[in-house]
Each structure stands twice: as structure tokens, then as C-alpha cells.
Simulated scan of single mutants.
Amino acid sequence: MPHPSPPRGAAARASHETARLLAFDTSTERMAVALVAPHGAWTADEPGGALASAALLPCVHALLARAGMALADLDAIAFGRGPGAFTGLRTSCAVAQGLAFGLGCPVLPLGSLLIVAEDARIQRAPQDAAFEVDVAMDARMEEVYAGRYRWTEGRWQELAAPALYTLEAFAAMAADGPGAVAGSALAAFGERLGLAPQRARVPTEHERAAALLRLAQAAHAAGEGVDAALALPLYLRDKVALTTREREAVRAARDAAAEAPR
């Protein structure tokens, strides 16, 4: 009769310092993948969007190969749960859930807007004890995904949960708010966001995968791992199943936005 397999994953290596974590996010046009183990960390920032569904797993295996690791070595899998592009969120959640089920390890759901906030913090105030930022990401169709976050006492607080805003509604919420503003909506909509001139702006991300990895490590250290069945996306639009005409309208709006001057 075969002996039971020895414990693996989080049960075998509970220490945060020795955790082996895989993290990825495909909620935007950039795909972020990161890996950390006691002997190092590896990151990849690659084209995402429609490419993510085909590119994510090969990128994961490439990072594992660079680290000399196998999937079975992982203690937990972190993933960007959204908000963001519908197809990208489905890719991230499906891959996280499938891998975690197969490996018997927990998942760490991470807010995709918080990744932008963490990257902005490192760009603007890496040594500051306090930092506040409104994150606004281009959601297309004249809307933004936005949330407000504060860094204090070495951790993030969510001051305003992620929500879908029209440009007018976001301007009313964020025009005179404290702190910086970060995210792709700055380049997409510019002055139409109605921000006060004195507000600091962080329009582009510097190292999304590195920011993702820091959040994954913090979540693991805080014991935020959950069952693989809870690898679920955060959708903010009222409908996710569109009619043919609606899909055509969305496609036309996206094409127009892509061709507009930035």
C-alpha cells in the first residue's frame, strides 16, 4: 500500500520568508507575471490584452524554468481579480483556479487597481510613511474604473472601493481630492477628468510585475490565501453578456478610442 504524499504547498512551507509564490495579472493591455522563491525573484511585463489567453501559461513556464522550479514547488498563486477587461479577467481567474486546483494550493486574489497604486507609490514616494492615490483606469466607452487608496503604517487601506464611473462622476469624486492620481485614464482622457492642476499625476506604470509581486508577498504574509474555488473576477459593468449589436458598438468605441490622439 503506498504511503501518503508528504505535505506540500503552504502546509509544508508556512513561513512568509521562504514562500514560493507565483503571481500574474491580465486585466490591462499589459500582462504582468512574477515569481518569488528563497533564492530570488523573477518578473515579466509583456503585451497582454487579446494575447494574454495564449501567452500567460508559456510565460509562467518560462519564469519557472529561469528559477529552476516546477509548478509543484509553489505555495500559493496570486492573481489580479479586476476590475479590468472582461476577457483578461476570465483568463487570469481561470488559470489561477486551474493551477491551484491541480496543485492543491491556495489563491491570493489581488485588486488590479491596487497594483497601479503600488507602482505609483514606488515612483512618487518610496520612502514616505504615508501616500494617498486615486487610481483611474480607462474602461473605454467614456468610463473609468477607479478607486482610492492610502499607504500608511506599511500597508494599504482601501478608502473608496473600485467602481465604474462616467467621466463626469469621476471628476466630481476626484477633482479636489488629496494625493496623486495614477492610471491609464490620465493619458486616455486628459483634462476631461477634471483634476485640479496641482495634483500629482502618474500616467504610466514603471514595473507592474514588481508591484504585483510585492502585493502578493504582503497578502501571503497576512494569511489572505483562499480556496481555489474563490478565484473569482471582480466585474463592475452591469452586463457581461452583450448582444451582437452591443458588441459591435463596443468594438467601434474601442477602435475610435485607439485611434484618437493621446
Rank of each mutant, 00 (worst) to 15 (best):
D45F: 02
M31H: 01
A222W: 14
A231T: 12
A161T: 11
G68E: 07
G194N: 12
I122G: 02
E132A: 12
R30W: 05
G183Y: 00
D119S: 14
A187V: 07
L56T: 13
A146K: 00
R81G: 04
A169S: 10
H61N: 14
L63K: 10
A72V: 12
I115N: 00
L21R: 02
A231S: 04
L22C: 12
T43M: 04
A67C: 09
G9T: 10
A129P: 14
P6A: 06
A175I: 15
L186F: 06
T166V: 04
R121E: 12
A32V: 02
A76L: 03
A253W: 07
A185P: 08
A129C: 13
I122C: 10
A54S: 11
L212N: 06
A10H: 04
A260N: 15
Q217H: 09
L232I: 11
A221E: 11
L63G: 07
A174V: 01
A34W: 03
A130M: 11
A210Q: 08
S15A: 13
A216L: 15
A41W: 12
G88V: 02
G111Y: 00
G40N: 12
H220S: 13
A172Q: 08
A211F: 09
A11T: 10
A169W: 03
M173F: 04
L114M: 06
F170G: 00
E46W: 03
C105K: 05
G194P: 04
A125I: 04
